[in-house]
Design a protein around this nucleic acid. Structure first.
Lengths: 233, 233
DNA sequence: CAGTGGTCTAGACCACAGG
DNA sequence: CTGTGGTCTAGACCACTGG
């Protein structure tokens, strides 16, 4: 068998994936070492390393020093979600975006907010409620708390024309966060703002953003009926 | 300012992210070239390349040949979703998993299935309906179509003890797929199987899996009330 | 056309963990 | 202790694309 030449890491990656898909290497198998593959493929070890590293990141391969590289037994599918600014999400669909602030106040938040944001009980946070619309129809209802200790400049911002969504992204750095999705029925203010029946099934996003150890903002986004979150893997 | 030495790509990455977070480099800015940074950091260009490449993958940097590297203006947050086998998802929570097949038949699917799977109208597919339970309580209701042309061996599999979920993963390679999430109200059979009211808001996952150009399976998963999908970024 | 990122190479050293 | 992956280096060539 004349081995064709694999001169770049992508072709090496393709070949490795082919061998996995054709069961030439089956789940649980130890595959040859980088050095061996480099010889076989006629390329440098760094090239093989790059290819295998990228595959390992998808979970299809498990790599351990000394133990070698194995085909994973139960590769949990991984998909990458894009979480755009709402305005962009709407404008990308060719629709007209609009934003309106329904409420702005500084309050003591309910306990579930303080605990998830890890903030002293009794702290006051900026509480914003807003509605995002697409082509003048309700799109998403936003209920947000902002940590004024971490974002003092929010105190002097009205958020009447610029959504907190965009303002925070443009002005406040963050290092990470958590996000969760679920289905819920509308609360009364949500049903009114989104102009849908009280018992509608709505898609809900809950988001918490951190800058280092400081909670920046906690956000509850309820989408109008029909919303879908999509991605591919 | 005495520049400390950055001898590995992770420390270079940290330093670059620090400069972005501190607004030393602001969104839209062109940052120095790899070669310049390599000199400044006292490391090889490949090291800088690795660091910048990884950052670019998160969307925080935009890189273009000749144009250079810029701090992205609207970095859409990216989160990685783990889509485990349902059994693992349940067992990871320390609960007892059970699976039962409610229906198995070979049918002509409704048109929305044939179109999304890009299959000739009138083709017959294997149709499975199953219930996954956690600690003997309904967890998810599965409605699945399997393309027998792409997976002929499914015809001889009962799917009574092994869920299609696991059987397919263990036996059939795939190259990619699409997934979407939304909220829905229960259909009658779903409400009965999941033992919840008809108007419950349920979390729904729709999944389509491909092997090259062949659709393998299309799956509608409806979760019992309270289900949450979580991740971090 | 020329500047920038993208990649490959050959060799080297290191870190980790299996036996 | 030794084999394996993880990474760094210096140099080179290539590919794309902006001007």
């Amino acid at each position: 068998m004349s081995t064709p030449s694999f001169r770049n890491w992508q072709s090496v990656q393709d070949e490795v994936l082919r061998r996995i898909n054709t069961r030439e290497w089956t789940p649980g198998d130890l595959i040859p070492t980088e050095a061996e593959l480099a010889v076989e493929f006629g390329c440098a070890r760094a090239t093989v390393n790059r290819a295998l590293r990228e595959i390992a990141k998808t979970g299809i391969l498990d790599r351990k020093r000394k133990a070698g590289t194995r085909v994973a037994r139960n590769p949990a599918t991984k998909a990458t979600l894009n979480i755009p600014i709402i305005r962009q999400e709407i404008e990308d669909k060719g629709q007209k975006y609009n934003y309106s602030l329904l409420n702005r106040s500084i309050e003591t938040p309910p306990p579930n907010i303080t605990t998830s944001m890890q903030i002293p009980v009794g702290s006051k946070l900026l509480h914003l409620i807003a509605l995002h619309t697409a082509d003048d129809r309700p799109f998403a209802y936003e209920d947000r708390w902002i940590n004024l200790d971490a974002v003092p400049s929010a105190k002097n911002t009205s958020f009447e024309t610029v959504s907190a969504n965009e303002w925070l992204l443009m002005n406040i750095p963050y290092t990470g966060g958590e996000i969760s999705f679920c289905a819920t029925t509308a609360t009364e203010p949500e049903a009114i703002a989104l102009d849908c029946p009280f018992d509608s099934a709505l898609f809900l996003t809950d988001r918490l953003t951190w800058n280092g150890a400081d909670a920046i903002t906690k956000l509850r986004l309820v989408f109008a009926p029909g919303y879908q979150l999509r991605t591919s893997f």
